[in-house]
């Protein structure tokens, strides 16, 4: 069963002048076809302006396609009667944690979503406690968000999305503004949500190392999907990636250069652990 089904989706940004005349049309999505099964962890990569965020905004009906259809768990995003069902099903976490946190106490912030959809207070308390526990922030329930680190704030934002009990979460460059430990904290939470809570994850990132952790990598270029495969397969084609403004994860890059220098390392190394294992094997021989 597909959580997300995009059929021939196209979208244009239209710029108008003061008199409302169209000055410019920019095609942001060009005939996208993508099926994401329930429970999958999909990374979406691509250069700035490739259409990643525009696509993400189609998943919870923030944007509607000009052509084609997007279905979320079978619900058509252009059907207004199911709009709130779709937004309950698919949550979003954005780039800047400071723009997503509104309340002055962590648990109130997390409660905002369920309050908004009219959940009864008793249930809200349960959901908030559970969501904070999942992201490892239960100790900070009564704290002010202002004093948290970037990674902690972003985990509170994730808890806020979780409190509406979504089955799918879209992360739009949610690690871009974090320090290294903050990035790691968020990645660990994302992996846990996918593995333990069975949440379908769509993870947009510019960090190739993060994309390498997904089940599947979708590469976008000028509004189209140009690669769609397992990470090891996508990261096997360094020339194509480089032409698309992307690069290999560093471990894959190092493995490739070592291979070119004559070391017999296999072609599917994309993370540091595997690379270290492979080099230790060579040492034994």
């Amino acid at each position: 069963m597909d959580m997300i089904k995009a059929q021939n989706v196209s979208y244009k940004y239209i710029r108008r002048d003061e008199e409302d005349r169209i000055v410019e049309e920019i095609t942001a999505l060009n005939n996208i076809d993508l099926h994401i099964p329930k429970g999958q962890f999909v990374a979406v990569i691509g250069h700035n302006g490739s259409g990643k965020s525009t696509f993400a905004k189609h998943i919870n009906a923030l944007l509607l396609p000009f052509d084609g259809k997007v279905f979320v768990d079978g619900m058509d995003t252009s059907d207004e009667t199911v709009l709130w069902d779709i937004r309950k099903k698919a949550g979003m976490v954005f780039q800047n944690p400071d723009n997503q946190i509104i309340a002055s106490v962590v648990e109130e912030d997390v409660a905002f979503g369920p309050e908004n959809i009219g959940i009864e207070p008793e249930k809200i308390r349960e959901r908030v406690a559970e969501a904070l526990k999942i992201v490892g922030m239960e100790k900070y329930a009564k704290h002010s968000p202002a004093r948290l680190s970037g990674g902690q704030k972003q985990r509170v934002a994730i808890a806020g999305a979780l409190a509406i009990l979504p089955q799918c979460l879209v992360f739009d460059e949610s690690t871009a503004m974090l320090d290294p430990v903050g990035r790691r904290e968020v990645m660990n939470v994302v992996k846990k949500l996918n593995k333990e809570e069975k949440i379908t994850v769509i993870f947009i990132t510019h960090y190739m190392e993060e994309a390498a952790m997904a089940d599947r990598v979708v590469v976008m270029d000028r509004g189209k999907i140009v690669m769609d495969a397992a990470p090891a397969e996508v990261f096997a084609d360094s020339e194509k990636l480089s032409a698309l403004g992307l690069e290999l994860p560093q471990a894959a890059q190092l493995a490739q250069e070592l291979r070119q220098a004559g070391l017999p390392l296999c072609a599917d190394i994309i993370d540091t652990e595997t690379l270290v294992e492979a080099i230790c094997e060579l040492e034994k021989k």
Partner: peptide, 19 residues
């Protein structure tokens, strides 16, 4: 809250394994 570069991490992992 910081880290070492990935290259330094890889080198350390290799040293830990006796290389």
């Amino acid at each position: 809250g910081l880290d070492v570069p990935q290259a330094a991490k890889a080198a350390q992992m290799l040293r830990n394994r006796g290389i």
